[in-house]
Computed example of a mutant assay.
Amino acid sequence: MDRDAPAPSLPDVRASSEHVGGATVLRCMMAPMRSSLRLQLAFFCSIAGFASIGNPLRSEAPSPAESHEAAERVFTVNGIVRQPARDGRIIIAHQDIPGYMPAMTMPFNVADTPDVTELKPGDRVRFQLHVTDDASRADHFERLGRAAEPRPSSALPKPGKRLKAGDTVPGFQLADEEGRPLDGAAYLKGHFTVVSFLFTRCPVPEFCPLTARKLRDVQSALQGDPRVRDRSQILVITIDPEFDTPTVLKAYGESVGADPHFWKFATGNPEQVKTLMGEFGLYAERNNGLLDHTLATAVVGSDGRLLEVWRGNGWKADEVADFVRFRAAPMAEKTGE
């Protein structure tokens, strides 16, 4: 059974969203880099930047000595409206935001105010972007004029063959964050596995960082239950295997608090990753440099069969943890573990 839930609805990296079948499709354009070293340096700089701007995955409250700027950063952003405001979001192709992210096309959270609702595709705008550890919002929009021509939205790809509850997850071959081979069938066997997908270059709090925060909470909940901690695990598969090498994934895992004995990250051949995404019902297609994709998190049983899928990013950590407990704990009791 699938639980379709709307997602709370990076070089040049571009991300946008579009509603398809009840899910929010995130579309990310990643311009080519000249060397793998430059890519990894850029990533590690972003990891180092967490220390200066506040780790989005931290749980402790900021100390009184921390400034207001550390709690909420405000950026002035220039861009072009690509899609008008709908359901509290507007899609804008923005210029570089120094100190935060390169140019992209992405959705921004907005209020239903006249300065937003009157904007049309092709309008050039300047606005304020507020970013905290948990959320982002855009306001104070100023219309500057019209762009020469709005970029039309391309058609979205169709997902590949989707697994249903009870189907056996086909075998796959990936590499973990240490660069070691990861045989899918062997890894899944004997454990209840929370499987999710993200990519490390996504800095927007409501997207992949939110998935990582939730997975950290799932990890804490399951490791804290002696009935299931040895029968459960987490596997995150990158949707950007060209950039997310094992070295990059290892650094990312450390930054989000993943226990490598419990929570693994995996990358691999782009075609293999694309196939896996299709099997779990995610969109995975590159169109003119755009990486079109959706989000999903699933639980695979100890027999390798798909048990449940949560579409988008609206699932709650305790919901997933309780789902695993309900199935793994009775098995542990039967075997005397």
Rank of each mutant, 00 (worst) to 15 (best):
T105H: 04
D133E: 08
G99T: 14
R325C: 00
S196Q: 03
F280Y: 14
V236P: 02
T76L: 12
D12M: 10
Y283G: 10
T297L: 01
P270C: 06
S9T: 14
L290H: 11
V236S: 13
A186D: 12
R86P: 01
D318Q: 12
G268S: 09
R305E: 00
D176W: 06
V299D: 03
C45R: 15
E118Y: 08
G253K: 06
R286W: 08
R3E: 08
I47Y: 06
A65H: 13
W263R: 09
G184Y: 02
I92K: 09
P181A: 09
A7F: 07
A296D: 00
P152C: 08
L215R: 02
P6Q: 10
V228K: 04
K264G: 04
D318E: 15
E177C: 00
P260G: 11
R143Q: 10
S16V: 02
E149A: 15
N55D: 07
D133Q: 11
P205R: 04
A296L: 01
A175Y: 11
K274V: 01
A284N: 13
D139A: 10
L26F: 12
D115S: 13
I47M: 13
D183K: 06
C208H: 12
M33K: 02
E285Y: 09
R162C: 05
V77I: 07
P32E: 08
T267L: 07
A328N: 02
S153W: 05
A175W: 10
M331E: 15
W263T: 12
F199M: 13
L307T: 00
V110A: 09
R86M: 05
A61C: 09
F262K: 04
A148D: 11
R34E: 05
P241L: 05
F326G: 03
Y252L: 08
M1R: 13
G268P: 06
S9M: 08
M104N: 10
A51T: 00
S17G: 10
V248R: 11
D2Q: 12
S153Q: 13
T132F: 02
M1T: 14
P205S: 06
R180A: 15
T132H: 09
H293R: 05
L188R: 12
P8R: 13
P84Y: 07
F265H: 10
R34F: 04
E72M: 13
H130F: 14
S136G: 04
G312Y: 01
